[in-house]
Computed example of a mutant assay.
Amino acid sequence: MKSNRIKGFTLLEMLIVVAIAGILASVAYPQYTEYVKRAARSDAMVLLLDAANKQEQYYADNRSYADDLNLINVPSTSENGYFNITVEVPDTGTSFTITATAAAGAVAGDTACTTFTITDTGIKGSTGTSEPVDCWER
């Protein structure tokens, strides 16, 4: 005798699977977005440190800091395009401040770390609106 029993999933089993997947997604997604933000911030920090190093090399050769990123071969945006990089040099050319500002991607809505700065004296700074944190240490 042949059995006419149909094999498959019941509605209750499907609801349990969907509920478990929803719980996992609600935990994983915020962690993933925070990881992407931290990775983008790290890229900006590395770019700022590299630019500061190149500024010092330029100063050793020219006795003034470069007021244009192209002179020290530093891009005006991070590799992933998430940060815009600018340099400020006073008229005397004896100091600089390089700034990375969040512009696009995962960090566009980041309120904790919106800008990173580094100066000729090595002072690292950051600004944000949501909480007072040192973004260089995160």
Rank of each mutant, 00 (worst) to 15 (best):
Y65I: 00
S3H: 09
E56G: 07
R38H: 04
V46A: 11
K7R: 13
C113N: 07
R5H: 10
Y82N: 11
E88T: 14
G122D: 04
T121A: 14
A102M: 08
V17F: 03
I20C: 01
G125C: 15
M45Y: 01
Y32H: 05
L24Q: 01
L71M: 06
A44Q: 10
S42E: 07
N73E: 09
K7H: 11
S126W: 10
G125E: 14
I6P: 01
T114P: 01
N80D: 14
N4L: 12
P75M: 00
G81H: 08
I72A: 06
Q55V: 10
K2S: 11
Y82D: 09
R5N: 11
S78K: 07
I123G: 03
T33N: 05
Y32M: 00
I72S: 08
G8V: 03
S42N: 12
S26I: 03
G109F: 02
I6H: 09
A60V: 13
T77S: 15
R38S: 01
R5G: 04
G109D: 10
G81V: 07
V18K: 08
Y29T: 14
V36K: 07
G93N: 09
V74L: 06
N53F: 11
A19I: 08
N73W: 02
T99I: 01
I23Y: 03
A51T: 10
P90W: 00
V87Y: 05
S3E: 10
A66G: 03
Y29N: 10
P30A: 05
T101D: 11
L49K: 13
E13C: 11
A21V: 08
V36Q: 10
I123Y: 13
E13N: 12
S78W: 04
T114W: 02
E137A: 06
K124C: 09
A106L: 05
T97A: 07
M45V: 05
P30V: 06
A19T: 15
E131R: 14
D120R: 00
G22V: 01
V74I: 15
G81A: 03
E79F: 12
L15Y: 02
I98W: 12
A21R: 05
A25Q: 06
A112Y: 08
R138P: 04
A106V: 13
V107Y: 00
S64F: 13
D43Q: 14
L48C: 00
D50A: 13
T129E: 13
F96D: 04
N73V: 11
C135Q: 11
A25L: 09
D50L: 14
T117N: 06
T119K: 02
Y82P: 01
A106S: 14
R5D: 08
K124Y: 07
V133A: 09
N62S: 15
V74S: 05
P30G: 08
